[in-house]
């Protein structure tokens, strides 16, 4: 059981003020080192589920075990600390702090987590190594993030999610703002880096064309009973 990256059961979540539950998942597991493609239509609760797994939101009920830690039992600050230490996150777009340079953006998790800083070792060397793996020329990294192209920004975001070797990477539709060729290249890099780092990957998207490159795929609509009721 503790070998799983994520395991949850009877998980329920309702947004404050909402009439109905947004998520009600009986059972879901992400094995350690597994690369999972989770798909669902817009509004089905994908981002909400990632927020729960990331410890930004707290479930209303049920079990939520991430990397062997029962997140539902932790207080807010401990969940924040847990997320900083163990989880890398990539969003759909506008991932970066616009006024920091690309390099500072990549190094940012090390500022929030001493553990990740320690695992990264020499932070600027780690930044350079990740940037090289993700096809980011050194000249680009010194520029403010706002001046990078969308594809470059997404690669910086991937590097930021991977720095300091977090055990779990969660990606919320990171390719949807890229064109087809860029999508493929980005996905290849991300998958390779996660494998190299031994990180589990939970990749969320509504674009089923990408599913084939993952170890496994799952549909949120099938997992989420709250959604069934709505339909």
């Amino acid at each position: 059981m503790s070998a799983d990256a994520v395991s949850l059961s009877a998980l329920r979540y309702r947004w404050p003020g909402a009439a109905r539950a947004c998520l009600d998942i009986a059972d879901f597991t992400l094995a350690a080192g597994e690369r999972l493609f989770l798909h669902g239509p817009s509004g089905s609760g994908k981002t909400t589920l990632l927020s729960l797994i990331g410890g930004v939101l707290r479930p209303e009920g049920g079990k939520l075990r991430v990397l062997g830690t029962e997140l539902a039992a932790l207080g807010g600050p401990r969940r924040d600390r847990f997320r900083a230490d163990h989880i890398g996150i990539i969003f759909q777009q506008f991932n970066l702090i616009p006024y920091l340079s690309g390099a500072d953006n990549i190094a940012l998790p090390c500022r929030f987590s001493p553990l990740r800083a320690q695992r990264a070792g020499n932070v600027s060397a780690a930044v350079a190594r990740l940037a090289a793996h993700l096809d980011l020329p050194a000249g680009l990294l010194a520029r403010p993030a706002a001046e990078l192209s969308v594809g470059q920004q997404q690669r910086v975001a991937a590097a930021r999610a991977l720095i300091g070797a977090p055990a779990l990477v969660i990606a919320d539709e990171p390719t949807s703002s890229l064109d087809a060729a860029r999508q493929d290249a980005f996905l290849a890099l991300l998958l390779a880096e996660c494998t190299a780092a031994g990180a589990s990957l939970l990749f969320v998207s509504h674009d089923l064309r990408l599913a084939g490159r993952f170890d496994r795929q799952a549909a949120l609509t099938e997992l989420n009973h709250a959604a069934e009721v709505e339909a």
């Binding site: 807010g76 924040d80 997320r83 900083a84 230490d85 991932n95 998790p109």
Partner: peptide, 15 residues
């Protein structure tokens, strides 16, 4: 947006 990114990186509401 920026605040949400910081949150995702591990910043707490207190931060």
């Amino acid at each position: 947006r920026e605040l949400a990114i910081l949150r995702a990186l591990g910043a707490g509401p207190g931060d």
